Simulated assay, not measured.
Amino acid sequence: MANESTVQLTSAELSQIWTSYQNDTASICILKYFLKTCEDPDTHTILDHALKLSEAHVAKLTAIFNGEDYPVPAGFSENQDLNIEAPRLFSDQYLLHFMFQMSQISLNAYSVAKSLAVRSDIDAYFAECLQESTELNTMAKQALLSKGLFVRSPYIPYPEKVDYVKKQSFMTGWFGERRPLLSLEIANLFANFQRNSLGVATLVGFSQIAQTKKVGQFFTRGKEIADKHNEIFGSILREDDLPVPMTSDTFVTESKVPPFSDKMMLFIVTALIGLGMGYYGTSISTSLRRDLTVHYDRFIHEILKYSEDGANLFIEHGWMEEPPRASDRDELANN
């Protein structure tokens, strides 16, 4: 059996530690600014805890890259991507909701990374990250609950007995009478609405501080897409007399001073787009009503085009750092 210390990292492991480094270096900048502007002590504690975790992650990931003689990614830095003196852009309520959503995203990301890791040190690292994300998620959830800010998904009645589906019409949705939504379909619609609502607030804030015209227009377009998707999610929930999550107009201030570089804001938005496509894909796979799957399929195609335009903006400005990739055998042969 090979010595674990001499086993090279797989492409799967490289992809996860490289992406984690990008995310954590961006998180350090974001969290330092949020800490500077946050006034609520409970939210401040959560932000500070998250910052310490990201700083520890960057140190451990840097050690892994150095141990492999692999170039440490550029990522993001406070000197180039953060203006810590910028005035408040987002309210404390937004910051707390942001931390809750980020903890949920981290849980999903680290569970995937843990499942892909084979080498014992990488497996142990992501197992630790997964545990940390669980604790952070609980902290944010408890803070939201204690402040009356947590919005629970809709309640539905308990059935009196076990039943079975008897008709093929169970899966229809466009023509004839639609059956009521299933609990998992409700959960996905509700969660997607909440994520989009936070995304709208983020894009509103970013669009008013973007320094590049094209980047600002890109953020405005994303806000319009998210709003349109939420209109449809809301109408489907209301059709079954289910509550629709409320959105907040107090999340964003009127500040025009950018705390973040356009590069980092574009990175955050394109990362959220990718996650959104993943959540929509999960929603398709767990929705049995055809009208829902058609909606999600259309939404995925729309944000896929939006994501491509974001990538083109990255390349156009020379901001896209190339991820780990396979060797180009044709190029090697030509050289």
Rank of each mutant, 00 (worst) to 15 (best):
E55A: 05
S103H: 02
S133G: 14
R298L: 11
L47T: 08
V204G: 01
E132K: 13
A191Y: 15
A124S: 14
F90L: 06
L145A: 01
N137L: 00
T220G: 04
D24S: 12
S283V: 07
L14F: 05
V151T: 11
P245R: 02
L53Q: 15
I46R: 02
E4I: 05
Q101M: 15
V252Q: 06
E185Y: 05
V151C: 01
N188V: 04
L275D: 01
M246D: 08
D309M: 13
A117I: 02
K167C: 12
L237F: 07
L292N: 09
V7P: 11
Y21A: 10
N335H: 15
K60N: 15
S120H: 08
V294G: 06
L130S: 03
A2N: 14
T19I: 05
N3I: 07
S54G: 13
F206S: 01
M277Y: 08
R119L: 04
A109E: 10
A117K: 03
F65D: 07
N334F: 11
G148N: 10
I315M: 10
Y155P: 08
R88W: 01
H57W: 12
T253S: 15
I64F: 07
K263R: 08
F219Q: 04
R88E: 07
Q80G: 10
I156M: 04
G216Q: 04
H301F: 09
D328M: 13
V215L: 07
S153T: 12
R238C: 03
D291Q: 05
P245C: 09
T253E: 11
V165W: 03
L198H: 02
G216K: 10
S103G: 04
E128F: 07
T43M: 04
G216L: 01
